[in-house]
Design a protein around this nucleic acid. Structure first.
Lengths: 108, 108
DNA sequence: TTGACATATCAAGCTTTCTTTATATATTGA
DNA sequence: TCAATATATAAAGAAAGCTTGATATGTCAA
């Protein structure tokens, strides 16, 4: 995906679907706050439960949304599960938005 | 917004709300296809109606969503309305994702 | 093996978003 | 002014997403 121009991606159904899912994962305030907590590095779910005022199943729901979109990875360590951001996927999004911006700026 | 570090933005309710709205605007395949059509420059709604197979009111609904989020601007020219991408807002999103990515890559 | 703890999943209800059809508004040309 | 055209808005139903409370799964320590 990273190699494609946005003009192409925005015509390919599979890429459209993937992009929409990525942006959807980022379109919720609770999930954005989770992303904020993960900026400091991998975090145990238990830390997130404390930091955000979200109930346990709610947090789990949003972590799953982020994970399904590919924005975060999880790693079980004993009884705890740690989540971390996926820099490559963030880079893909940045590249995509960057090329859209370039396209927009070039012609207007 | 552009000047703030993501760590800060992701703690400020107003910024969280704005970011969530921006990403929500990008989280729909029809709207992404509209963005694709606007890469070539400002487009009349009538061109978009032809290019996408969306009905008129549906297209109008999605254009409004993009406009409310600040991603596009509209300009009436007589009987026609033209929509165009807003490069500055795209730049803001790119900067935001870029800093999140850097934060993610730095620590992991 | 049992009990306690961390996390995930499920189900139900509620809210938001999207689609469709119908109607309204704005602009132009006759 | 009237008819035609372009676009927006409204209303209603369908679909998707979110929250909450209950239950299930998995892991450890005793």
């Amino acid at each position: 995906m990273a190699a494609l121009l946005p003009a192409r991606m925005l015509e390919r159904p599979a890429d459209l679907t993937r992009l929409a899912k990525l942006f959807h994962a980022l379109s919720d305030e609770t999930r954005l706050r989770i992303v904020g907590k993960l900026l400091g590095g991998e975090q145990c779910v238990c830390n997130l439960t404390d930091a955000l005022d979200a109930g346990q199943s709610r947090l789990s729901f949003h972590l799953k949304a982020l994970k399904d979109a590919g924005l975060v990875s999880d790693r079980r360590a004993g009884r705890w599960v740690h989540y971390a951001l996926n820099p490559e996927v963030l880079q893909e999004i940045k590249n995509f938005i960057g090329s859209v911006r370039e396209g927009a700026a070039r012609c207007c």
